[in-house]
Design a binder for these strands. Structure first.
Length: 572
DNA sequence: GCCGTTTTCGGCCCGACTGTTTTCAGTCG
């Protein structure tokens, strides 16, 4: 949390400096620092203690001091002074699409507008026209921007955006005019939330493709439609951008529009030092302007002496250094996954029978499925009593005799009670192959109590996996207060795996905590927590999170064969 | 404000689109 708070302060400073029309590079320095701090896998307070702040890229003497001040006093004098110069509401203006620092300042200086409500009133009353550079069209754009601002334009969870994007892609690919098609942006990087859906295509008839795109049934409003770019707002409330590019520039455009912005800045800086120029059209040599490539994304990286960096890593959090030193990880692939280690059946709150689940798992080519229904205290989820669990175990054993090349693993999602004790006694848990433990209530415990609670649970020798470890729900609920370093330390010591829960609204662990777990030497399980057959498909989201967390096949429990997995589990 | 096998000072990624302009500023990604 600390990291996020420091990052927020630096971003706020950058906003104010923008309105003050300060040196743009200084502003960028604050933004870059904010981004890098937010992306840290360690606690910034920890770095401060060991005097290692200046090792973070973009943090020099001055910013290190400012961080120290934030950590020790909880405030920053510099920011407080800045706030006296620039009214807070002016910073809000920057969140209105189409309104930037210049316009914000102009409105305040000339008309004294200091709230979005007032701005809206003046715009609708045509009182903005006549200001330098503002005529009717700009006024309309501000009104529309305020509407978008009010709608919140929240980022959409990847689990919702991805199917939406895929349905659009399918419709476009059905056109004979569309040759190649690829996603770009945060969607391609598989970030947990996306701001808009970016699609690139090559086509001999761009106008036709644009027209079809703008006329899709999912489209609510067309924002802009040019020769190479069309932007729309979808009924689901997210923006989608389509760009038509030349085949010879497809790789360059893909690299460029995939981002992230921070990654692009770093790659372009590298290019400049090598006497090259990267753009969305290709890679060019400064000396004679010659184009060295751009049809393939690989061209762009090769020109810098780098291997292709997987999109999931392109956040400028060390991937460029790793690529330069030849130590990019061989990221786990979906096809490496041999089974699902968290699945519910109709024995508790799942929708399907064990037979149905087995059939679906075999269709997916899985070698095993861990049945982990809820335990008894989860009354709302029809949690299993000890007697029911015993009966389920019998059914699992009977079914397993019938299968070939597939088996159920017997398990439970045992509830971790408020005091850290488990919902079933050890002798019951001992009969199971793999035990998944999870918190489902008492989220509001203080940090220390929550940490003790989880540590106690994972110290139990029968617990193999901690499910949805932080309890966060995307956009709905923060994770519980937790000493994550301590949990990881004990997880490593006790050989307990952490789960990457692929359930779209959870994605818990997230990418950063996943990476921290790996760095702490802890194994991970990628599991769907499926309650229906279709939810087994969300594994893709968990794999994406694992990749964003720099995980390789070797870091993940369910890339192991059933035999190895069971051997390992029996040794806890 | 950061950063350096071209530099401790002088650089700092690149281009499209829009709306307002007669050559460009502002915003965005």
């Amino acid at each position: 949390m600390r990291n996020f708070e420091v990052a927020k302060i630096f971003n706020e400073i950058a906003d104010i400096l923008e309105i003050k029309d300060e040196n743009p590079f200084r502003i960028r320095a604050y933004r870059r620092a904010a981004q890098n701090i937010e992306a840290l896998t360690e606690d910034v307070a920890e770095l401060a203690r060991s005097d290692a702040l200046e090792k973070v890229p973009g943090i020099g003497k001055d910013l290190a001091l400012k961080i120290q001040e934030i950590l020790t006093t909880g405030r920053l004098k510099y920011l407080e002074n800045l706030k006296k110069e620039v009214p807070e509401s002016l910073v809000d203006f920057l969140s209105v699409p189409g309104v930037g620092p210049k316009t914000a300042k102009l409105l305040y200086d000339q008309l004294g507008v200091d709230s979005i409500e007032k701005l809206e009133g003046l715009a609708k009353g045509h009182k903005l026209q006549g200001l330098p550079g503002i005529r009717a069209k700009t006024e309309e754009n501000i009104i529309r921007g305020i509407e978008l601002y009010k709608k919140g334009r929240e980022r959409m969870p990847l689990g919702r955006a991805l199917p939406l994007a895929q349905s659009i892609a399918t419709q476009l690919q059905a056109l004979p005019e569309v040759n190649r098609l690829a996603f770009a942006g945060s969607l391609r990087r598989m970030k947990e939330t996306v701001k808009d859906i970016d699609i690139l295509v090559t086509s001999d008839h761009p106008a036709k493709v644009m027209a079809v795109f703008a006329g899709l049934s999912q489209v609510q409003e067309v924002l802009a439609k040019g020769e190479t770019k069309c932007s729309v707002i979808l009924k689901e409330g997210i923006q989608a951008d389509l760009r038509v590019v030349d085949p010879e520039s497809f790789g360059a455009a893909l690299q460029y529009f995939t981002g992230s912005k921070a990654h692009n800045i770093r790659t372009r800086e590298l290019a400049v030092r090598k006497g090259l120029k990267l753009s969305e059209y290709g890679v060019f040599r400064d000396a004679d302007g010659r184009r060295l490539g751009g049809a393939l994304e690989e061209d762009m990286y090769a020109a810098l002496g780098l291997p292709l960096i997987p999109p999931e890593l392109r956040e400028d959090t060390g991937e460029i250094e790793a690529a330069l030193e030849g130590r990019l990880p061989a990221l786990v692939k979906h096809s490496d996954i041999k089974g699902d280690l968290h699945v519910h059946s109709h024995w508790s709150d799942g929708a399907h029978s064990l037979e149905d689940l087995a059939e679906a798992a075999m269709r997916k080519g899985y070698e095993y499925l861990l049945i982990s229904d809820h335990s008894k205290s989860m009354g709302v989820a029809r949690g299993l009593s000890e007697e029911e669990l015993r009966k389920q175990l019998e059914e699992i054993r009977t079914l397993n005799k019938k299968f070939k090349g597939f088996r159920f693993l017997a398990g439970i999602e045992v509830d971790i009670r408020a005091d850290g004790s488990l919902d079933f006694p050890d002798e019951v848990l001992a009969q199971l192959d793999i035990v998944v433990a999870a918190i489902h209530s008492g989220f509001k415990q203080a940090k220390e109590a929550m940490t003790k609670r989880i540590v106690k649970a994972i110290r139990n020798r029968h617990v193999h996996i901690l499910a949805h470890p932080t309890g966060r729900l995307l956009g709905e609920r923060e994770g519980y207060e937790l000493d994550w370093d301590e949990v990881l330390r004990v997880a490593r010591e006790t050989n307990t795996a952490m789960e990457i829960n692929s359930y779209p609204a959870r994605l818990d662990l997230n990418d950063l905590n996943t990476r921290r777990a790996k760095e702490a030497g802890v194994s991970l399980a990628i599991s769907t927590d499926a309650h229906t057959l279709s939810q087994l498909e969300t594994m893709a989201l968990g794999v994406a999170t694992a990749r964003r967390g720099w995980l390789t096949k070797a870091d993940i429990l369910n890339t192991l064969s059933a035999k190895t997995l069971l051997e390992r589990s029996s040794k806890k």
